[in-house]
Amino acid sequence: MIETIHGEFELIKDFKDAFVLDDFNKRYLDIFNIYPYVVGDYSAGLLRLKGFTNNNYKQIPDYLTESCAPGCAYYILKNPKFNPHLNRKE
């Protein structure tokens, strides 16, 4: 488990030692709390974050291939405390 200012996350994959705590803490927004998985990748030296649901988790390899720079450093985090109801309007 990784302790961040946004809570604890499980580091599932850390390709090319991509996870940098300070960068993650600066870039993470509360909107990502609705996702059980967060992918971080570095493009042109900047960290990009994208959330994935349980339903589209298997699309992460496609995202990395199609939307990220070839061979870029990336990581996949699992958010054990995600809440899918945070952003829903009843």
Rank of each mutant, 00 (worst) to 15 (best):
D62G: 00
G40S: 04
H85Y: 15
E10C: 04
K13G: 00
F19A: 01
F9S: 02
N83V: 09
Y37Q: 05
I31T: 06
K89H: 08
K78G: 03
A44E: 10
R88W: 07
D14H: 08
A69C: 01
F15K: 07
C72K: 06
A44P: 00
N33P: 00
D17Y: 04
V38W: 07
I76R: 03
A69I: 06
L46S: 15
D41F: 07
E10G: 00
F32A: 07
H85V: 03
K81D: 15
F15Q: 02
G51R: 04
G40C: 08
A18P: 02
Y63C: 09
V39S: 04
L47Y: 10
F82V: 03
A44W: 14
L47S: 05
N33E: 11
L46F: 14
V20S: 03
L49V: 10
G45L: 05
Y63L: 00
T53W: 11
I60S: 07
L11G: 01
F15D: 01
A18G: 03
D41N: 14
A73G: 10
G40N: 07
L77S: 11
N83G: 08
Y37N: 05
L11Y: 03
I5V: 09
Y57K: 15
Y28M: 12
I5R: 12
Y75V: 02
L47G: 09
G7D: 11
N33C: 05
R27L: 05
N54D: 14
G51C: 03
L29Q: 09
N83E: 13
S67M: 10
T65G: 00
I34C: 05
F32M: 08
T65F: 06
G45A: 13
L86T: 06
Y74V: 06
F52P: 06
L49P: 12
L46A: 13
S67T: 01
N79Y: 02
T65R: 12
F82E: 06
